[in-house]
Design a binder for these strands. Structure first.
Length: 417
RNA sequence: GGAGGGGUGGUCGAGUGGUUAAUGGCAGCAGACUGUAAAUCUGCCGGCGAGAGUCUACGUAGGUUCGAAUCCUACCCCCUCCA
């Protein structure tokens, strides 16, 4: 049925594997085929960058723009003051106004490589729901908005049920999250004539609440479209590594590490990822699927995603770095390569290899760094270090640089100052 | 309100006075093999410490004891049944 869509955007989205669920796909398709629309995706503002886990809906948003539709990126500056109920545990620090400001700006930057923002035609626009949520007055809100939310409907939301069933802390505060998220849709529908919300399938409940709410209030048809929630072939959550999330902003995840993430994906995920995360024509992807050299396909995947996110220049730098790291090439200077700086006076003759691994964040604790050395996985300039008390000397640095690694793949340069 | 069951390390889950920093599974890290993949095998897997060792941990707070995750008391939270 994927190919039976009338609109070009849904046809391509379906072929590439972006579509999971929709409220009314036929009508949406008809509407899309008819004329350009405005759509949005939302994200919370709990971090200074988005990460690979957000990338599927982002790529879909991009696809819509490519097909002439107008994308809005909504940042949850207001809703993040409450917190998504899918969070666990009691201790959730309320974000300060200042932190939210910073996060909002960071998320704006995260979107930039994927969405063209501006004032013309179908240029995208960044919105922040704090703009309207901060101004809400309780009584009018409950009266005008609250009455459109049947209690049974709210209680049936998965995010709510899950909280209640698992006895996780859940107060009226968090309970309001889906309502406010639904309200966002109304604001965007009225302000921006937005008629579609996209998001990950874990957001289905929240998105549908918004759709129902907007229909009720405005008596017009709006739509929901979700993307499949990606898990990698080994069943774990997409985009997580031992180091944490793979961030989209270069200052949170070096392009080198970003590239490595894609270079190292499971064989079984390659063709799926090529469809979703690159813009290679489907025939080319099909050709890559039949190649006997799957590593070639992985490199193309890594190259295309890195170039899209960080630019061609960064990709070139990554190639140099990869060559240096894995094939003993020349060490080069670049902010695209993970590097950290230490002070010669305070380090040489003073601190140990253990300190260095901590400083380079290849180990979280000194114990972990020690175990790494004892297990033979700690490398200094490509040589496995066996002495955990090894004190750093000038001889360990050539031209002021050293290379340390945890295992064969987690590497970082140390620059002496 | 009453009766019973339960809260253990990232997670699941053993353990009911003393070689218990706490069996085991999962997750994670490293080594071997390989293709910077998967699978498999091996080692590691609370903090600090070169080591001896030391500190912190079994819902919270006290207590008993030479010694407690294990016993007692109070409190908090959860589950099941009754009202």
């Amino acid at each position: 049925m994927g190919s039976s869509f009338k609109s070009s955007v849904l046809r391509e989205a379906a072929e590439r594997g972006f579509i999971y669920q929709s409220t009314d796909i036929e009508q949406l398709d008809a509407r899309l085929a008819q004329s350009p629309i405005t759509l949005y995706m939302g994200s919370d503002a709990t971090a200074e960058s988005l990460h690979i886990g957000h990338l599927v809906p982002i790529m879909l948003l991009r696809l819509f723009q490519k097909h002439g539709h107008r994308p809005l990126a909504l940042v949850g500056g207001g809703t993040s003051k409450i917190g998504d109920p899918s969070w666990r545990n009691t201790a959730r620090p309320m974000l300060s106004e200042e932190a939210l400001q910073k996060n909002t700006e960071g998320i704006r930057l995260s979107y930039r490589p994927y969405i063209r923002f501006g004032d013309k035609n179908n240029d995208g626009k960044i919105m922040n729901n704090a703009a309207w949520l901060d101004k809400l007055a309780y009584i009018p809100f409950v009266r005008d908005v609250g009455r459109h939310f049947p209690m049974g409907r709210l209680l049936s939301l998965d995010s709510v049920k899950q909280k209640l069933n698992n006895n996780l802390p859940f107060s009226f505060l968090e309970f309001n999250y889906p309502i406010l998220q639904a309200y966002d849709f109304l604001e965007l529908a009225q302000q921006e004539n937005c008629i579609l919300q996209i998001g990950g399938s874990d957001q289905w409940g929240n998105i549908v609440s918004g759709v129902e709410f907007v229909r009720r209030v405005t008596q017009t048809e709006v739509f929901a479209l979700t993307t499949p929630l990606l898990t990698t072939a080994d069943g774990s959550k997409m985009g997580k590594t031992g180091q944490g999330a793979v961030w989209l902003r270069a200052d949170f995840c070096a392009p080198f590490d970003f590239w490595q993430y894609w270079r190292n994906v499971d064989d079984r995920d390659v063709s799926k990822f090529l469809r979703l995360f690159t813009e290679l024509p489907l025939e080319e992807i099909a050709a890559l699927e039949t190649t006997e050299d799957i590593n070639e396909a992985k490199i193309i995947l890594a190259d295309r995603t890195t170039a899209l996110t960080h630019g061609e220049e960064a990709l070139q730098a990554v190639h140099h770095a990869v060559h240096a790291f894995f094939h003993g090439g020349e060490v080069i200077d670049s902010h695209h390569v993970p590097t950290f700086v230490i002070d010669a006076d305070t380090w040489l003759g003073m601190k140990t290899i253990i300190d260095l691994f901590i400083e380079g964040r290849l180990a979280q604790t000194r114990g972990e760094a020690r175990r790494l050395v004892r297990g033979g996985g700690a490398y200094l300039n490509d040589v496995s270090v066996s002495d955990e008390t090894l004190v750093l000397q000038e001889k360990h640095f050539s031209k002021g640089k050293a290379k340390i690694a945890a295992g064969k793949k987690r590497l970082i340069y140390v620059q002496l100052r």
